[in-house]
Write a protein that binds this DNA or RNA. Sequence first.
DNA 1: AGTGTGGTTTAGG
DNA 2: CTAACGCCTAAACCACACT
Length: 391
Amino acid sequence: MYQRKNYANSPLIFHIDVNSAFLSWTAVDLLNKNPKRIDLRTIPSAIGGDINSRHGIISARSIPAKKYGIQSGESVVNALKKCPSLVVVPTNFELYKHYSKLFIDILRSYTPYVQQVSIDEAYCDFTDLYDMYKDLVKDNLTYPLSLAHEIKDTIYSKLGFTVNVGISTNKLLAKMASDFTKPNRVHTLFEEEISQKMWPLPINELHGCGKSTSLKLTSLGIKTIGDAAHTDLEVLCSILGEKHGNYIYYSSNGINTSAVSSSKRIAKSYSSERTMPSNLTIDNYDSDIQNIIQHLSQNISRRMIKDNAYASTIGITLKTNHFKTHSTQTSLLISTNDSNVIYSTAIDLVNKELLGESGLFMKGDTIRLVGIFATNLDNGDYRQLSLFDLF
DNA sequence: AGTGTGGTTTAGG
DNA sequence: CTAACGCCTAAACCACACT
């Protein structure tokens, strides 16, 4: 295990990631209810949606399931072909939220500088806590490995699931480190380790370099993170544009200045969408779509009211049987979070889109999914002011 | 040149 | 009996109109 000589004067960031979160949490929950039950983590198992209502996608899988080549994001039907004995458990978001909160609470008991970035991962900043933890020793390990193991093992003993911890001096490197071998591991990725641990990796494994970008880069011979790191900044910008070119160049060289922000993030948009059990056609869409849009409007409205958020823009998304997505939006005179206003605005947009000349309905296209979104948000202050001014 | 609006693409979990 | 491909958020980018 790599150790630096001195940690007193450099930043120290951890990235903590729950291993197969949805599956682990489900396994723990089932064991809590019945300790004799088989542990889902020890057999080929996965969290997946219902095939019959066309929500059949794998969102997490056990390590034994991974050995069958099952990936998260692939269809349940496909996964069952690879492993007919796969145990598929439905999703349960309330359960995940419960364990997520307990997980974050433990992190917060070690540092106030915790930034939760998704339901199952967070960054912790220990830069200013050197004096508090510098003498911690655990299993013959010294700081900061001792601290990482302490956190990891505490989560396991108190909550029953494993995590990976990535250690470095910035968020990008800590994130990359936590993604190394799993599960239940601590990894470091300091600047002096980049060439050995990060540069040999394929470019698509760089955080922020997705399918489209990695395709562009590999087609030009930039196949590894190291290749990108050794490409001129100007060349990357000419391929990817100014913004993304800079991001890929500096990231592949391990440079990242993003701060760990423990303050609550304010939403910039709310959206809700649903894949329907069967596609809607232009002839029969009326009654079905009204029900769904009412549902989606109420969902968004409830969340916005809880956050005291109001939207000036309401939009809809339609996905065709060919998986082609169309969206349209409209601006409101007065921002709203009223489900009736959202509903009627969305219905108008759907009618306009379907009956107008959008070109969506060519030769018998049908609608697979309908979604609505609310954006251009304010907190109601401006709204109160403008209402007040009217009188 | 900057701002508001509408729409698509990319990314990540 | 068979069966496929979710849901949510954020940001960048592009085009266009208006100023």
